Simulated assay, not measured.
Amino acid sequence: MASLRTYFAIYVVLMALAISKFAFFEVAFLSYQQAIAATFVAAAIKIGLIAGYFQHLREEPRPVTYVMLTGLFMVLLLAGAATFSVWS
């Protein structure tokens, strides 16, 4: 299990990423598309930190991680299929 210092550092990083998502749209040198892309990258980093540390996925055996990644892949596949059916 990670130490209290590690959890606090991750909490600070998560707060900084949350604030940065607001800042991406307020900064004048980023276009709207770049702000959206930066927001998606920040969200992916937050998901990785939350799943890895707060849900203790880093400490689980690798097969549990593979099951979780398979579930994520299936959700993304389903969302892609739904998006395709809406746009066609």
Rank of each mutant, 00 (worst) to 15 (best):
Ser3Ala: 09
Leu4Gly: 10
Leu4Tyr: 15
Arg5Gly: 10
Arg5Ile: 14
Tyr7Arg: 15
Tyr7Lys: 14
Tyr7Val: 08
Phe8Thr: 14
Phe8Ile: 11
Val12Met: 09
Val13Gly: 03
Val13Thr: 13
Val13His: 05
Met15Thr: 09
Met15Leu: 12
Met15Glu: 06
Met15Asn: 10
Met15Phe: 15
Ala16Gln: 12
Ser20Phe: 14
Ser20Trp: 09
Lys21Gly: 00
Lys21His: 05
Phe22Asp: 01
Ala23Ile: 13
Ala23Gly: 04
Phe24Val: 07
Glu26Lys: 13
Glu26Arg: 09
Val27Gly: 03
Val27Ile: 10
Ala28Gly: 07
Ala28Asp: 06
Phe29Pro: 02
Phe29Tyr: 09
Phe29Asn: 09
Phe29Thr: 15
Leu30Ile: 05
Ser31Cys: 08
Ser31Thr: 08
Ser31Asp: 08
Gln33Thr: 14
Gln34Tyr: 12
Gln34Trp: 14
Ala35Arg: 02
Ala37Gly: 00
Ala38Leu: 04
Thr39Asp: 01
Phe40Trp: 11
Val41Phe: 04
Ala42Lys: 00
Ala42Phe: 00
Ala43Tyr: 11
Ala44Glu: 02
Ile45Tyr: 00
Ile45Ala: 01
Ile45Asn: 00
Lys46Val: 03
Gly48Gln: 02
Leu49Gln: 01
Ile50Gln: 02
Ala51Gly: 05
Ala51Phe: 08
Gly52His: 02
Gly52Glu: 00
Tyr53Ala: 01
Phe54Ile: 03
Phe54Trp: 07
Phe54Asn: 02
Gln55Tyr: 11
Leu57Ser: 01
Leu57Gly: 02
Leu57Arg: 08
Glu59Cys: 07
Glu59Trp: 06
Glu60Leu: 08
Pro61Thr: 07
Arg62Ser: 03
Arg62Tyr: 04
Val64Lys: 08
Thr65Val: 06
Thr65His: 04
Tyr66Ile: 11
Val67Leu: 06
Val67Ser: 04
Leu69Met: 15
Leu69Thr: 08
Leu69Pro: 01
Leu69Ala: 10
Leu69Asn: 13
Thr70Leu: 11
Thr70Tyr: 09
Thr70Asp: 02
Gly71Cys: 14
Leu72Lys: 08
Phe73Leu: 10
Phe73Tyr: 08
Met74Asp: 03
Met74Asn: 07
Met74Glu: 04
Leu77Arg: 08
Leu77Cys: 07
Leu78Tyr: 14
Gly80Tyr: 11
Ala81His: 11
Ala81Asp: 05
Ala81Trp: 15
Ala81Val: 10
Ala82Arg: 12
Ala82Glu: 08
Thr83Val: 12
Ser85His: 15
Ser85Thr: 07
Val86Asn: 06
Val86Arg: 14
Val86Glu: 03
Trp87Pro: 01
